[in-house]
């Protein structure tokens, strides 16, 4: 299993945000995490990627503990295994698309691989925008650049949080195609959290999250 999570709960100010008995993903699987806003999808993503420490429960990524680990170990695990794509927070503002990918390679500890950067930029269809800064990109271009950046470190796990929420049908479909193709070509396990039911049929496995209050 690439992801193993057990008895996860997360509370903020006595309010339970997440209560999940277990969650597992085998290596190479593509899964969509569905649920309405506020059901805890982002919280689960944050816990799985080590950005948030759960109130209780444990998470293992590729057999290595994410919960309970020291911050530096969590950072290292995220750096080495996980590529993250967010809804709006995508690229470092002062850098071009190409420089963002180059920095991602550097931070992942890899050597600068210009050919790989070119390939990834071409893969997301941004070769003509490689030297543009984030503020010069459209929403869709920015999201595609973020996917390329997330793939730079060849992550075992590619996680995307609401990647299509701001896109129209055509662009949402293209984005999912891109994520699937990218995960496939890189051999990554893909986990997408979304409330967008338009993409449900594209994934073999769907995990539905219900709001905790409703579920209780």
């Amino acid at each position: 299993m690439l992801i193993q999570a057990r008895r996860l709960t997360h509370r903020i100010a006595e309010r339970t945000i997440l209560d999940l008995p277990g969650f597992e993903m085998p290596r190479g699987e593509h899964t969509v995490l569905l649920g309405p806003s506020g059901c805890g999808k982002t919280t689960l993503i944050n816990i799985l990627t080590g950005l948030v420490t759960p109130t209780s429960g444990e998470v293992f990524i590729d057999g290595r503990p994410m919960t309970g680990a020291r911050p530096a170990a969590r950072d290292a695990l995220r750096r080495e295994c996980i590529g993250l794509v967010f809804q709006t927070l995508r690229l470092v503002s002062a850098l071009t698309v190409r420089q963002n990918l180059s920095l991602a390679q550097h931070l992942a500890g890899g050597r600068s691989d210009e050919a790989e950067i070119d390939r990834l930029i071409a893969q997301v269809g941004l070769s003509h925008r490689a030297h543009a800064r984030p503020r010069e990109l459209s929403q869709g271009e920015s999201q595609r650049a973020a996917i390329a950046r997330a793939l730079c470190a060849r992550p075992a796990l590619l996680v995307a949080d609401e990647p299509t929420s701001a896109l129209d049908d055509a662009n949402a479909g293209a984005m999912i195609d891109l994520l699937l193709a990218s995960a496939e070509s890189g051999g990554s396990t893909l986990l997408i959290a979304t409330h967008d039911r338009r993409i449900r049929e594209r994934f073999a496995r769907t995990v539905e999250l219900e709001p905790v209050a409703l579920a209780a």
Partner: peptide
């Protein structure tokens, strides 16, 4: 203004 960048750098694996 760059808090988002800092968060992004942390997500990308930069050490504090």
């Amino acid at each position: 203004q760059r808090e988002a960048d800092m968060a992004m750098l942390r997500v990308m694996g930069a050490k504090p």
